[in-house]
Write a protein that binds this DNA or RNA. Structure first.
Lengths: 252, 252
DNA sequence: CTTGTGCCTTGACCTATGTCAATTGAAAGC
DNA sequence: GCTTTCAATTGACATAGGTCAAGGCACAAG
């Protein structure tokens, strides 16, 4: 919600890179004016409503894109309906795979979403000729790989409670990095995902997610306002619940 | 073992890129003679014995490297000893993270291992000046990200039996892509991992791994010679057990 | 051939999480 | 202000996989 739900009316406003909210974080972060102009020639915006599919696994994909506002999810599905989220794209994240014209997972808009799309072929050409783009993309991809690996530890080894705590701390941290400066003690944010989407993210069922959230609430680790607004009185206490060492409780 | 266990005696022989077994797959795959010469100036070889640690999470890492022969594992550990493998590096795979001088996971030699190392700083400079390197690295990183995402589905949603079947089919496929041409019906290979390492890979315990392997054997999906030699009479049957759709059983 | 030392297998039992089903809550349209 | 609808909670119960413990197998060293 809040800063996420810019709808179609704004697509005109967004056409200018100068005022683009992700100007300094996306693939184009390092581009000079002339390079932006090149990109501009192959770009267009697209809007999706919350819940809308963007592409299906196996589809032909003739563009790559940056998420401007909103949240998109990459999910893999099995025949029998089991589903695992394998990527969560937030503003400035990159969607698509230069060098491949087909897509390996379903992509869905989790919230209302605006993409800044680039036609794939010309983008690939730019990639070759513009180190400021290809190097930024390499950096972003390495970051995503690191995130994916952390996620694997969560999926493979953590208990349900630890999984939920980990997810909440990820959101809390991100919220902090956007607005406030650092230490998010007393963080407050609204969950961008339904219980079902959280379950898909964490390899759980929605019932287990619900139960563990209730348990964390009972134990005073989190407070809920309604069903989406989360308040974290003591971030350290939440961290302990994630099972990640770091320090955990500083007393002792 | 077989083609993997080239030991220290060979490190001299390996000094020449011309005869390097990974010449056409590693980061250097696209390099011209002059670019190889540049790389050569900052490179050196290192050998590790099976089981040896290479670096620990948090350590300073002053090199990046290509795996020349052998297998290395990236693992994340939790305080209480739980452990999850998050990457398995095979010959030609890249180790290290340009732009970061510290390492996020433990790296261990799973089998005897030879690395072709590049001093980090000069490698990063080359990366900036040599598109043939940076673009190959981008491509490889995107591939790893795809693999990581497939792995997430395995970790998050598959049953123990499906996990084992998936792992075996991954090995079978790789074996095939090395030696034979394609369809690995009647594949035969030796497991490069102990039961414990497989458990770490799959987010299981070693007992469960053992039980599921026994079960697949009982059901005639695989045959074992000793404890490591695997024979797969009917690859399609194995695929069905992975839970991945594709086609599965062609009859029907 | 004998003894170790690491794997690996197998069994009995336990628990975390999934499954199925009923209820409650809360935002959206009339 | 009601009704509808979709999301979330909660409970009772089932089960896959973890835990603990005892052997077994095979290769290496003597």
């Amino acid at each position: 919600m809040n800063d996420i739900s810019i709808k179609s009316e704004s697509s005109a406003r967004l056409r200018d890179c100068g005022t683009c909210p992700i100007r300094h974080n996306a693939v184009c972060a390092r581009c000079e004016a002339d390079e932006l102009a090149e990109l501009d020639r192959v770009k267009y915006y697209r809007n999706y409503e919350a819940g809308q599919p963007i592409i299906w696994s196996g589809d032909h994909m003739d563009f790559v894109a940056s998420v401007v506002t909103g949240v998109a999810a990459l999910t893999q599905a099995m025949e029998d309906g089991r589903t695992q989220m394998v990527g969560l794209l937030l503003p400035s994240d990159f969607l698509g795979r230069p060098g491949r014209n087909t897509v390996l997972y379903d992509v869905t808009a989790v919230s209302d979403l605006t993409l800044c799309c680039f036609r794939r072929k010309p983008f690939e050409d730019l990639l070759k000729s513009t180190p400021n783009i290809s190097q930024r993309l390499l950096e972003m991809t390495l970051n995503e790989l690191d995130a994916a690996r952390e996620w694997m530890l969560i999926l493979g080894r953590k208990t349900a409670r630890e999984k939920i705590a980990s997810l909440l701390s990820i959101f809390a941290r991100r919220e902090a990095s956007l607005h406030l400066s650092h230490i998010p003690d007393g963080a407050r944010f609204s969950l961008p995902l339904t219980r079902e989407a959280m379950a898909d993210y964490l390899g759980l069922t929605l019932e287990t997610v619900s139960r563990q959230i209730s348990a964390l609430k009972r134990d005073g680790i989190i407070e809920l306002h309604g069903t989406r607004q989360v308040y974290i009185p003591d971030f350290g206490a939440l961290l302990v619940e994630t099972g990640d060492d770091a320090d955990g409780g500083m007393p002792e």
